[in-house]
Write a protein that binds this DNA or RNA. Structure first.
Length: 578
RNA sequence: CGGUGAGUGGCGCAGCUUGGUAGCGCACUUGGUUUGGGUCCAAGGGGUCGUAGGUUCGAAUCCUAUCUCACCGACCA
């Protein structure tokens, strides 16, 4: 490609609303343009990258035994009614009507459609297992689109769905997909982690996310510093080795006045926040005979809402109690709540249970207890008189850096990650709801087990930039660079020698099948260097009068800055071997 | 959905307080100049000032409504 016949669309300045580096660089490098909130057009340079990512994904899917199909973006709302997700999915599901006022949705994902196809066209166990995929535009009406194509409303996703008679078979395909995903991210050259994840609203039990590690990530990933254990912090189990020490202090009630937060109480009593516990009141589930449940956490720890919701006593989704209701029931406001004589069921986080001689609210305005010890002092509705019993000690808190790793080896580190892939073992959630099954060997009807596997193609492009950039611009990994090499001639429009060598090299590289960009603009060298560094072409060949005298050309590597002089006739081989 | 802020040429902004018919930088066009790291000079083209209504002799500027966008939060995966 010659730059004079191409739409480079680079710019020096960047719209002020772009605040992550990948978004800024994608705009400056002329890769994308915003059309409206969360909607982006892909310009030639961006599309080239997108297509390369997509090609790698296609190849690895086919290699893993998945078969390509294509499903409509517009789907009948009926289907979503059947699976129960029309309500469940909420306003993120964009609903539209056709000219006959029939209801449709824009597909954010395709479980309903694929299940319909398979239930109609797969009737025998002999046709299983089956794994189908597509690469396609999805639409999710995000509350707040941000970070450019990282969280846009319209985006391209590879989604695959597998169908099985047994969980064992599903588990095998799940493993194959896990391997295929690793292959994809390895080939692209990303620094990523496969992490244990929550399956969220999509349903199912087993689930892994693939995260590209980057500061701008929206998820927190916890991983062991000495094994390959990694989990979304939403899921990471908080391990506490400590056990409560024997009491050394007497229980005392103290007036703490206006101090109502962990921070102010700790300061007033000159203690560390970890020597106190806090009490959160949440709505109870219908499983138990109570309106609320009290959750006890160590003062310096945070509640993990996902863990809390999974407890049978706690309503899901999690609802925090209103202060007025708590006052009526307990007799004091949020600031002085505590586990002792709490008139409702209590759940204690493992770390809080390991505290001794601690501080907590006294369930009385302005009053706290000090020197509290569980075995000696604790009592609450639903608990044994003898203090803490194991049924109410549970994992409720968010893990923090330095916690012991749940895998038993090392301690946890926490880093930010960008979710670029997610695989699920769905089980029969959709196949059951939509009656998708086959006849088995024994002639019996059986509902299928499903898996689903997604990769955010557009998001990978942004994630790759987050991980590979410097002050001059993007540094593409070779596998997804828009061009492999750029020819930068110095003063080609004045020098016949430079012109001749540049034109010939361009033709030779084309003939060798290399993805080459030829900057044939009548621009000053500085402009060309700056543009090519910005769009991140990994390899440059610079042609100038001064090196032609030695029959040589200069090679420059974008990422390493390495410069080498090459004999003219060795350039094509040098590049093709890169 | 709550909080905050912004809409003036393709991009970044000034002008608004104190109304008088729109300006700067980048980009673009032409000519010259320069040529191994975003040259310099000159001349040009391009804007119903988000939209609608109102006040006024006169509105980018004041008033009202409305739309859009962004940031923080909540939500989602």
């Amino acid at each position: 490609m010659r730059t004079t016949q191409y739409l480079l669309a680079t710019q020096k300045e960047v719209p002020s609303d772009a605040d992550v580096v990948s978004h800024q660089l994608m705009l400056r490098a002329g890769m994308v343009r915003k059309l409206a909130s969360g909607l982006y057009s892909w310009l030639p340079t961006g599309l080239r990258v997108l297509n390369k990512v997509s090609k790698i994904v296609h190849e690895e899917m086919v290699r893993a035994g998945s078969i390509e199909i294509n499903m409509p973006v517009v789907q009948p709302a009926d289907l979503w009614q059947q699976s129960g997700r029309l309500e469940e999915y909420g306003p993120e599901l964009l609903r539209i009507q056709d000219r006959h006022q029939r209801d449709f949705v824009l597909g954010p994902t395709h479980e309903e459609v694929i299940t319909t196809i398979v239930s109609n066209d797969v009737n025998s166990y002999k046709q299983l297992p089956l794994n189908l995929y597509q690469v396609q535009t999805k639409f999710r009406d995000e509350v707040r689109p941000r970070f450019g194509v990282m969280r846009s409303r319209e985006f391209i996703m590879k989604d695959a769905y597998s169908f099985h008679l047994s969980m064992e078979c599903l588990s095998n395909t799940y493993q194959d997909m896990h391997t295929a995903y690793c292959n994809v991210f390895d080939r692209i050259g990303l620094n990523y982690r496969s992490v244990i994840a929550d399956s969220g609203s999509i349903g199912g039990a087993v689930s892994h996310e693939f995260h590209v590690l980057a500061e701008s990530g929206e998820d927190d990933i916890a991983f062991s510093n000495s094994s390959d254990y990694a989990a979304n912090v939403e899921l990471a189990e908080a391990i506490t080795h400590a056990v409560a020490a024997s009491p050394t202090k007497a229980l005392e009630k103290v007036n703490t006045g206006d101090a109502k937060t962990i921070a102010t109480v700790s300061e007033l009593l000159s203690i560390n926040a970890s020597q106190s516990v806090k009490t959160l009141i949440v709505a109870a589930s219908s499983e138990i005979d109570a309106e609320f449940v009290a959750l006890i956490l160590r003062g310096d720890h945070q509640l993990n809402a996902i863990k809390a919701e999974k407890h049978p006593w706690i309503a899901s989704p999690l609802v925090m109690a209103q202060e007025e209701a708590v006052k009526t029931l307990v007799g004091c406001g949020f600031g002085t709540l505590g586990p002792i004589k709490m008139p409702m069921p209590v759940l204690v986080d493992r770390s809080a249970a390991a505290c001794s001689d601690f501080v907590c609210g006294a369930n009385e305005e302005n009053m706290h207890f000090t020197g509290v010890n569980w075995q000696r002092d604790f009592s609450a509705k639903g608990a044994d008189a003898s203090g803490l019993d194991s049924r109410i000690v549970v994992d409720l808190r968010q893990v923090v850096a330095g916690d012991p790793s749940p895998c038993g080896s090392g301690t946890l580190d926490i880093r930010k990650g960008i979710e670029v892939g997610h695989i699920f073992q769905l089980g029969d959630k959709y196949s059951k709801a939509m009656n998708c099954g086959v006849l088995t060997e024994t002639g019996k009807y059986q509902v299928l087990q499903m898996g689903c596997y997604g990769i955010g193609i557009t998001r990978i492009v942004a994630a790759a930039i987050e991980q590979n950039n410097d002050k001059y611009g993007i540094m593409w990994p070779d596998a997804i660079a828009p061009f492999k090499v750029v020819i930068i001639p110095m003063n080609m429009h004045k020098s016949h020698r430079v012109n001749e060598v540049a034109q010939k090299l361009y033709q030779d590289l084309l003939d060798a099948g290399v993805d080459v960009l030829f900057d044939d603009r009548k621009e000053r060298p500085g402009v060309m260097f700056a543009d090519m560094e910005l769009i991140g072409v990994p390899h440059s060949i610079i042609i100038g009068e001064r090196n032609l005298d030695e029959n040589a050309l200069e090679y420059k590597n974008r990422a390493t800055g390495e410069k080498i002089m090459l004999p003219i006739d060795k350039v094509v081989t040098f590049i093709t071997e890169k």
